[in-house]
Nucleic acid binder design. Structure first.
Lengths: 135, 135
DNA sequence: CTAATTGTAACTAACACAATTACAGTTTCG
DNA sequence: CGAAACTGTAATTGTGTTAGTTACAATTAG
């Protein structure tokens, strides 16, 4: 299993949308069943993407910046996805082989298109829809 | 970067389709720039999926079972994809939190749909198309 | 001032994966 | 037959990624 960050981020965002209030990293960590620092690291990425805002100091925490209906899963994906999901080999090509020489370019296109297809699907799913599935 | 197996498999299949002949794991390894054992492991998966056939013994190697026009990148993806691309947390839910309790089911659906969207895109791309990009 | 909270660095532990070595089994061909 | 050239496969290693954890400075509420 690789990179749970997307799953964590979806969970965090759903919890924030469901509660509608400020939640601190400890509450979120209990819900996700992980460590508050892990939650805060993800919140930083979500904040950088303009999805949540954070209050520091006592009684601090985070809340959504926008209504859940205006947030798609692609927004969340883009906020936390560090690496493309399909990796392209960066090895040196073998000069005597045409396949080897052209592979990187071809594979990059394949990986790009595949990821775009997935992101385009995620764009159609709103956070609101997930919240409705809780109730 | 995670799981280069898909990239390796695409490279191997493209090389086999391009040459049209039997290639042994050492030739393929040179083209991919990796170790013959790594290639053989991927060939096992491709064989199990019915995409290639292997000849053992001297002058052995592998070749495609079907024409490149009859092989989609989804076939290759399914042959080597061990884990779903989006992982779902398998942690115990926190009973006092409704979001936590329903998250696994919701996230499983999200991951399934996203992967299906990607696979459905890959189905539309044939190996033949990649080979044409080499020439 | 004290308590609660975030931001962040530093380190550890676990895990995934490619690379590598080694060797038994199979086949070709002199 | 016997050597050479392959595959199949197990075992081990090295490396990189990631979540977990601890610690602490900075900030804020009361």
């Amino acid at each position: 299993m690789v990179n749970q960050q997307f799953a964590f981020a979806i969970h965090i965002m759903t919890a924030l949308a469901y509660s509608g209030e400020v939640m601190d990293s400890q509450m979120l960590a209990r819900s996700v069943n992980t460590n508050p620092v892990v939650v805060r690291r993800i919140l930083l990425a979500l904040r950088a993407a303009g999805l949540v805002e954070t209050i520091i100091g006592k009684h601090g925490g985070s809340r959504l910046c926008k209504p859940a209906s205006a947030i798609s899963l692609r927004d969340i994906y883009d906020a936390v996805a560090a690496q493309p999901i399909i990796s392209v080999s960066q090895r040196k090509a073998w000069r005597h082989c045409e396949v080897s020489c052209r592979m990187r370019k071809i594979m990059s296109a394949v990986a790009d298109e595949a990821e775009r297809a997935m992101r385009s699907h995620l764009k159609a799913v709103t956070l609101q829809r997930l919240v409705r599935q809780i109730r």
